[in-house]
Design a binder for these strands. Structure first.
Length: 491
RNA sequence: GGCCCAUUCGUCUAUCGGUUAGGACGUAAGAUUUUCAUUCUUGAAAGAGGAGUUCGACUCUCCUAUGGGCUACCA
């Protein structure tokens, strides 16, 4: 969800300003490759209706869009930084670094690879050019680290938060490139590609704010400050209850999807999706758009093109937004009601077939949808709300029987059969009129009579207006059900 | 621990120094309805705390508290 919202804001911003929305796959961690993940991302964006203008699927002038396919372009920039003195080779092994961290932790400290200790560690700054070259030639594993200035105030600008200043003394010498897999880390690859791909705006999650100084410094060291993109760090999406940012586990725990589409991890772990849970993509997108942004008016329902028209970064809020599954449902219900009976009927028919009802035409389905859609949140609610229109009740709710199948009611239902029988054109309007006239003439209690009728036909004591129900059932079925109720419940 | 960001009803949010602090979800009550739902009306519900600045602070500054993020040869 968080990823989709970030993509959405990027999409809206790009559209709003006539730019291009680019999907680049940042797969520089060869250890964490997940088969199917890339395809999943493309499909999810497509379902949401926010297809990229350029990217792995669409192609484009900046191809390739997969960092693993751009390996050869990163090393030269890493070397350029070494040459300019902004970076250096380091030979410390992961084990050595882990040991240093453990050691520091034991003393209640945190190990930081920075100006204070870099001259004591295994790197080209200590070894000098010759020894470094020898080590590399000998096949020792190395990484290239950024040489973080010892103490410098870096003033940055964030489109959402304004000016942020950080002193480099609190930062560490981040790894930019690793010889082990000949791949850069995020920081280098991101800056190089953003430059090469002519990225004008970076809109990303707030978790990236702490590395913004590094990114500023990288642009400067590479000589690209002049064309550096503008940054906007989005507030995080938080769990509905408890603390922390929304994570994939929360959904299954709390009963709502966290993924746009159902996701089956290679491990076999399955996460439900908004699509499979019956959400309309427009509703999902609308809900996400308002989680951290608002147009300043009281309108809440926005089609995508309207979001494009209204979106602006200065109306994005600064604080994390707690996700509310109830409101997500409300959005879906709004979109469901706005859809035509016919459109919903087309979605309902497959469900009916699944239930073994395959002789229903679109017109009948639409007629049913018309009377149940305002009580539904999802298309999948339709069956629960209308099954009695397709299958006669096999039992009668005991509470309803106790409440309504008593006194003169059974006799009135018997009498009603004659009234219904006499209706020529069995339409809701005619049924309604005939019943009301009859009840009025006999001075029967309306509630008692109508609820008995409902019980006899539906088997329960809730549901849409009975005239509509009877019309959909037809005269024959309506009378058959009344007679059966009289037989089973007694007169 | 260090650094950074944030802080208005339970939740999402409006307010860009002067408002009875507005709306939505949820919730409570009532009305409508043959039932349920819908719809409508109404209600409860908020500026974390403390100092400043100012004629006047939810709004600006600082401190504290709280929440969150980052602190990897992950992104």
């Amino acid at each position: 969800m968080g990823g989709v919202r970030t993509a959405l804001y990027n999409y809206l911003f790009a559209r709003r300003h006539g730019g291009d929305f680019i999907l680049r796959i940042e797969d520089t961690d060869s250890q964490r490759f997940v088969p199917g993940a890339e395809e999943y991302i493309a499909e999810a964006l497509h379902w949401c209706g926010i297809d990229p203008d350029e990217g792995v699927v669409q192609g484009g002038p900046h191809a390739p869009y997969r960092q693993s396919e751009r390996k050869e372009i990163y090393l030269q920039y890493a070397l350029q930084l070494v040459a300019s003195g902004d970076a250096y080779y380091a030979f410390d092994t992961p084990d050595e670094l882990d040991a240093l961290r453990a050691e520091a932790e034991a003393k209640g400290d945190t190990f930081t690879y920075n100006a204070a200790c870099r001259s004591m560690l295994n790197n080209s700054l200590r070894f000098g050019t010759e020894e470094t070259a020898a080590k590399i030639a000998a096949g020792e594993r190395w990484v290239i680290r950024f040489r973080m200035p010892e103490s410098e105030e870096v003033a940055m600008n964030d489109l959402i938060r304004g000016e942020v200043v950080v002193n480099t003394s609190t930062l560490d010498d981040k790894v930019l490139y690793k010889s082990s897999d000949e791949l850069p880390t995020y920081h280098l690859a991101n800056i190089v590609d953003d430059h090469l791909m002519e990225i004008s705006h970076v809109i990303r999650g707030e978790e990236w704010l702490p590395s913004l100084p590094l990114h500023y410094l990288l642009y400067r060291a590479l000589g690209w400050s002049g064309t550096q993109p503008l940054f906007a760090h989005l507030p995080l999406l938080l769990k509905p209850t408890g603390g922390g940012k929304l994570s994939k586990r929360d959904g299954d725990k709390m009963g709502f999807p966290v993924f746009p589409l159902r996701w089956e991890a290679p491990t076999g772990e399955v996460s439900r999706g908004y699509r499979e849970d019956g959400y309309f993509p427009e509703a999902f997108i609308n809900m996400l758009a308002l989680l951290g942004w608002n147009p300043g008016t009281e309108q809440e329902i926005f089609p995508l093109d309207e979001l494009v028209e209204l979106f602006s970064l200065d109306r994005v809020s600064k604080s994390g937004a707690r996700f509310d599954p109830e409101k997500a449902k409300w959005f879906n219900a709004q979109y469901l009601r706005a859809k035509s009976d016919e459109e919903l009927a087309a979605l309902f028919l497959p469900i009916l077939r699944e239930k073994g009802i395959d002789d229903v035409c679109v017109f009948l389905a639409a007629r049913v949808v018309r009377i149940v859609k305002e009580r539904a949140t999802f298309v999948s609610d339709f069956w629960e709300l209308s099954h009695y229109l397709f299958v006669a009740p096999t039992e009668y709710d005991p509470k309803a029987v106790e409440k309504f199948w008593k006194g003169e009611n059974p006799a009135r239902i018997a009498e009603m059969c004659g009234i219904l029988e006499a209706i020529g054109d069995f339409t809701a309007a005619n049924i309604d009129r005939a019943l009301h006239d009859w009840i009025a003439a006999k001075e029967y209690p309306m509630g008692q009579v109508m609820n008995s009728l409902r019980l006899a036909i539906v088997g329960e004591s809730k549901g849409p207006g009975m005239a509509d129900v009877c019309e959909i059932l037809g005269k024959e079925e309506t009378l058959a059900r009344l007679r059966r109720a009289l037989g089973e419940l007694g007169k």
